[in-house]
């Protein structure tokens, strides 16, 4: 007898929660649906596109981009931009490879790589926050410096990774049945999404991006928030890099050259505004996934790969327009 009213009460509660989720993640749901439709359409032309093998390839290809994009997202949400992530990605790979090549363990090499990312993030954060330079200018400078250092540290040579066990960082299974690169993405997604939605610091990020002046009046430590997001962005770019080095067993000076624009594109496709104040980790993940699915689709269909940039650009345009229309309606 007691159960009936409880069930009756929980049903509307569940409906309300679902409505809240749909309302909160409207853009993300639209992107997810678009990816599903794109993949199904691709499957009509290339049936192998819908195999587990291809999904695994897409997941592997997109994992570093997801990790980097989530870092960039946090910066973008504060109204900043991080153009240095691609070069930091390249530099970290070279440093990691170099340290291993010098006889140190892969653990030390990985830590060194991550430290390089944090240092560059801290430099960006310091110059933007405490010196007051424009984020575009600061990260353009560190983009150039890190890109240059990526060649200087090994005189431009790529470095093969000879540690036979290093691939386990990316391809091993901490949880049986789930490759580490998937696990890392899921953990990062949950942590950052929780941070943004449920932790005070996350709300500060939104507040700083929406209106730094108002945030300051409310007592939010704007400088600390801004500095932190650049450090996190550097760290995540570095982590994406070591994961890639682990995957391909190779470090290259140009490895991150194309990734900066892809990461920013992923963030924009995912619904974040370059003016700050909006965005979600799920959106960045889906944006990165969308870019990889397009690349995968273009390759599988056999379209001249010169078209990839045009297709990606068109998708970004559509995503931004849909986002603008949906916000205008609200």
């Amino acid at each position: 007898m007691d159960r009936a009213p409880e069930t009756a009460a929980s049903a509307p509660a569940r409906t309300g929660a679902l409505r809240h989720i749909v309302s909160s993640y409207r853009s993300e749901i639209a992107i997810a649906l678009a990816i599903v439709v794109l993949e199904l359409a691709l499957g009509i032309f290339v049936p192998n596109a819908l195999t587990m093998g291809n999904f695994s390839d897409i997941a592997q290809a997109t994992a570093p981009l997801i990790i980097m994009a989530i870092g960039v997202l946090l910066v973008v949400m504060t109204g900043g931009i991080d153009l240095s992530v691609g070069s930091v990605f390249s530099l970290v790979g070279m440093v990691t490879g170099l340290v291993m090549d010098s006889g140190f363990s892969s653990t030390i090499a990985t830590i060194c790589g991550l430290v390089v990312g944090v240092v560059f993030g801290a430099i960006n954060g310091f110059l933007v926050t405490f010196v007051g330079l424009a984020p575009f200018v600061v990260t353009l400078i560190t983009y150039a410096v890190a890109g240059s250092l990526a060649f200087i540290v090994t005189n431009g040579h790529s470095l093969p990774i000879n540690d036979q066990g290093y691939w386990l960082l990316n391809g091993g299974h901490i949880i049986p049945g789930m490759p580490n690169f998937v696990l890392f993405c899921i953990i990062l997604l949950i942590v950052v999404e929780f941070l943004l939605r449920r932790v005070v610091f996350g709300r500060w990020i939104y507040a700083v991006g929406s209106s730094p002046g108002a945030a300051r009046l409310l007592g939010i430590p704007v400088h600390l928030v801004r500095f932190s997001v650049y450090v996190i962005s550097g760290l995540l770019a570095a982590f994406a890099s070591v994961l890639t080095v682990s995957y391909i067993s190779n470090a290259e000076g140009t490895a991150g050259a194309a990734m900066m624009l892809q990461a920013i594109a992923a963030v924009v496709i995912g619904g974040a505004s370059l003016f700050g104040g909006t965005g979600s980790a799920i959106g960045a993940l889906l944006g990165a996934l969308m870019i990889t699915v397009i690349q995968n689709g273009v390759n599988l269909i056999g379209v001249n790969s010169f078209w990839q940039g045009s297709v990606t650009g068109l998708v970004i345009l559509i995503a931004v327009l849909i986002d603008r229309v949906s916000k205008a309606r609200r």
């Binding site: 290339v46 192998n48 596109a49 195999t51 093998g53 291809n54 390839d57 592997q60 290809a61 790529s158 890639t244 995957y247 391909i248 190779n250 290259e252 490895a255 194309a258 690349q295 995968n296 390759n299 599988l300 056999g302």
Partner: peptide
Amino acid sequence: VNEAVQEANDLLTG
């Protein structure tokens, strides 16, 4: 190399 891995995977899938 990273790009080539992805392309080789796509080649083998297609």
